[in-house]
Design a binder for these strands. Structure first.
Lengths: 226, 226
DNA sequence: GTCTATAGGCTGATAGAC
DNA sequence: GTCTATCAGCCTATAGAC
């Protein structure tokens, strides 16, 4: 148990070196995802974390390095789960449905900010990222490719391009979650008819669309075709 | 024909008030889409346009208003074409294929930067946009909704949610084009296997995925079902 | 480890000459 | 209409006290 030696902290909460690091990571994750790298001044991150802004340079070596630490942490988790799924022995269509579900689930419960963050990075062309970080989305794509290729081999899917399939699946999911804020805005302003779509409904929608959209049409066109 | 009264321009090109406006719009469109609003200093826009940076305030009333003018111009064109398509009497699946094609085509030939710009705005939640501008994407969604609902009514599509369908179609398309730069980067670095996917290939992929994914499965389940 | 104070860079806007 | 020169504002990073 950590003893607090100096009691001059605003709240009574524990705050050691590790606590400061974590608080900065958490605050940064949310802020960078919501507003983008450029639009977040370090003092805002520090304030949200309840620490002094000089701590960013002290613990991470600057704003940019804090950002990289955040992106790596967030992405690492996704990659790990995606690669695990790619090794599943279940039928490919089922595995793909699971992958879609887990991305949606992670966006809702896990880290609700990673879709926006991913998209921002993709838009920037990865200019801010180093080699290691750039490899992460590639590994997710690779996992999807393996699942889709197995589905084709086993005759469950028609002969689609696995890379393009990955783009359409991941793209439609990221887009939905990244645009959630805009839909809320439009809805609150009374400009969106009906009710706000639920994440689970959308996940199901994509699952259906992809399952049926990739399905082999005839009984045996997964072997050589004209 | 405009007469050039003062010949002290760098290049021999014409440049009147309208020319300055246009040059700024063109330069801004490309730069904002490529790097995002915050990452583009006004002097860069001015330099690219070949005019003085003070012209931005003079002609548009500031950086922000230049940005809004650009977004409105780009979006207006898309909306017009989408709404026209929604009125087409062709079979719904065909119309949807045309819509997918025209978005892809516009992204390639028209303004190759608008997908990135749209996505950035969506990420920001439309914070920078005014009411009128916010209405544009909504009208595109509405157009898709009409096409999909007609397809359901006519028995070509299964009973999908038109709004969610819109999100998945537009989302996957925007994502592909917005991430083009990242793919190029990865490819150049030799980290992407195979060859870079062509826009036309992806458009076709989405057309197939959507057409087959939305298709009614049985002969008559478009009437009331369980 | 944490904080305050400040240095130094970059940005968008504009006054005023032409 | 266009340009130059300049300004105030905001940003990140850090030296040095504690």
């Amino acid at each position: 148990m950590t003893i607090i030696t100096r009691g001059r902290r605003r709240t009574g909460r524990r705050r050691d070196a590790a606590g400061t690091r974590e608080a900065l990571l958490a605050a940064g994750t949310e802020l960078f995802a919501e507003r983008g790298y450029d639009a977040v001044p370090v003092w805002v991150i520090a304030e949200k974390a309840g620490v002094n802004k000089a701590m960013i340079s002290y613990h991470f070596g600057g704003k940019r390095k804090l950002y990289l630490a955040i992106v790596n942490a967030t992405l690492g988790e996704i990659v790990e789960r995606a690669e695990k799924l790619a090794e599943s022995p279940s039928p490919a269509p089922l595995v793909l449905r699971e992958l879609i579900h887990f991305i949606g689930d992670m966006a809702v419960r896990g880290n609700p900010h990673f879709p926006a963050m991913m998209l921002r990075e993709a838009l920037a062309g990865g200019k801010r990222l180093e080699r290691e970080t750039m490899a992460h989305p590639l590994r997710v794509a690779e996992a999807v490719r393996r699942i889709v290729e197995r589905g084709i081999r086993e005759g469950a899917f028609r002969r689609v391009d696995p890379w393009l399939t990955h783009v359409s699946v991941v793209g439609s999911l990221l887009f939905f979650f990244a645009t959630a804020r805009m839909r809320e805005r439009l809805f609150t302003a009374g400009r969106l008819p009906g009710r706000l779509p639920e994440a689970t409904d959308y996940v199901k929608h994509v699952q259906e669309l992809v399952t049926q959209g990739l399905a082999r049409r005839n009984a045996d066109d997964h072997t050589r075709e004209g």
